[in-house]
Amino acid sequence: MLLSFLPIPDQASTQAVSVDTLFLVFTALVVFFTVLVCVVLIIFSIKYTRGTKADRSNPLDGSLKLEIMWSVIPLFLAIGAFGWASHVYFEMVHPPADAMEIHVVGRQWMWKIQHPTGQREINELHVPVGRPVKLTMTSQDVIHSFFIPAFRVKQDVVPGTYSQLWFEATKPGTYHLFCAEYCGTEHSRMIGSVVVMEPQAYEEWLQSGTTSESMVAAGERLFRDKGCSGCHAGTSSVRAPILNGVYGGPVPLDDGSVVTADDMYMRDSILLPKKQVAAGFKPIMPTYQGQLSEEELFQLIAYIKTLK
């Protein structure tokens, strides 16, 4: 590559190229200003060292013109840099609608990953090249951060909430996966690798090994076993919301507000059912706090999403 003499690490995602371009332009600006100031400093230093012959007549104590110039130029450059960087950021922040969703649970000190087909792995993430992948992540204990340097992506993984990160890998290979948020004793061992595969190879990998039930199937089983279906299935005698078609739509609450039924709403409704009560229903649902692991919550939500 043209810029390969620069100390730029592997670029293996669509984001990597735009982030690096931005980085290089910033670097050009920084080098320009550093050199500018240093050259002027050095010239003045040599020219005006005490004892040297130099014209010191009519010195300047201040100049409004100069002050305005060196305030306004940096201001406009800063605004320009902000604008561009924010544009790049906004392209990175929203995952494409067709992104494949993979679930990640962080804990001291490992990454637990589950693919939609049910395939699980630890400290390794296999993904196909050329397909947007969205990670939905949470932590079982402290804050971690999912960092793939070659993709230029990083996202904190926070207990009690879901965070998202997406990327589209562009180059098959094996790349570092690091935990970037200090998480205790073996923080630096909370590492792994991301394996980017050709789509065909990824499909084969998914079929290999002992594939357990898919996430949706596991969620359906939990929905029955944990007693959810007792109230939330159409035939129940208890008055509870029927969950068909709920996901993604608006939910009117009993306090008059309306929320969107996203993953976080689902999670809260299971663990903190009194937090947001759907309008027209009594707050009678018990909490499932402590009865479901983070993985099981992901599976349940995956199943509820399929209810039409």
């Binding site: 735009s18 982030v19 931005l22 980085f23 910033f26 600006l29 920084v30 200003f33 550093t34 100031v37 240093c38 800063a78 840099a81 902000f82 960087a85 924010s86 790049v88 950021y89 990175m92 951060s145 960092f147 340097p149 230029r152 992506v153 990083k154 996202q155 970037a180 948020e181």
Partner: peptide, 23 residues
């Protein structure tokens, strides 16, 4: 200070900060 201050701009830019924060 020049280098320290100017490298702060990379961290102000969210798109770059995402990659370099906590490194």
């Amino acid at each position: 200070f020049l280098i320290g201050g100017l490298t702060g701009l990379y961290l102000a830019a969210i798109a770059i900060d995402i990659h370099v924060t906590d490194t």
